[in-house]
Amino acid sequence: MSDLLERLRSRGWRLTAQRRVVAEVLDGDHVHLTADEVHARAVSRLPEISRATVYNTLGELVVLGEVLEVSTDGRAKRYDPNAHHSHQHLICSRCGTIRDVHPFGDPLSALPDAERFGFAVSGAEITYRGLCPDCLSGN
């Protein structure tokens, strides 16, 4: 389980009922929901929550650095609560499912000095692509 709710409480972020529900929907391992998916799940917990509130809350969480916005191949943005845990992403090329992965080694060391072109490289994002088990089996 991610520690999103705990992080937000420790920051003193005002957890209104709407904000709490959005955070609860996002909390967990391998959660990469679109804003519409967050809204649909939030409505099942708090029927009066508006789409605008969900979008605004997601935007605030991204600005706070508590949620990552993940964009893949022109698909809808997805929101990842594991912003404070080093990881990469494994994405299904067909259905768009995203899983967090934790490969060994330092991706920064894989970039040779000659390929840095004088940049002071501070981070690397690696995305692995393939077909998930459901898409492989034709489901």
Rank of each mutant, 00 (worst) to 15 (best):
T97A: 15
H89T: 04
L58N: 06
E48H: 03
G138E: 05
L46M: 03
E115M: 08
R75V: 05
C95W: 05
D73R: 15
T127H: 14
R11C: 07
G118P: 00
Q88N: 09
T34S: 13
N56F: 03
Y55M: 14
I91E: 09
I98N: 02
V63K: 15
W13D: 08
A23H: 02
R7N: 07
P103N: 09
V62A: 04
R116Y: 00
S137Y: 06
D80Y: 01
H87E: 06
M1Q: 06
L26S: 04
V25Y: 03
R129E: 14
F104L: 15
L131H: 11
P107F: 00
G12L: 04
A23F: 10
S50A: 10
V67D: 07
Q88D: 14
G28K: 06
D73C: 10
E125R: 11
S86P: 10
R78P: 04
A110N: 08
N82K: 10
E115H: 05
T72W: 15
P81T: 12
R99A: 11
P112D: 00
E125H: 08
G105W: 02
I126S: 11
C92K: 05
L15G: 09
S44N: 06
V21Y: 02
A114N: 07
V21M: 09
C135S: 07
T34Y: 11
P103E: 11
L68V: 05
A35I: 01
A124N: 13
I98C: 07
V101H: 02
C135R: 02
P133R: 12
P133N: 12
T97G: 07
K77Y: 08
E60G: 12
H87F: 10
F119Y: 04
H84F: 13
G74Q: 07
R99G: 05
V67H: 07
L111A: 08
A83S: 15
N56D: 14
I49A: 00
V54P: 11
T127L: 09
L131F: 11
L58V: 05
V101T: 14
P133K: 11
D3G: 12
H85Q: 10
R20Q: 13
R78D: 07
R99C: 06
R11A: 07
T57M: 09
D27L: 01
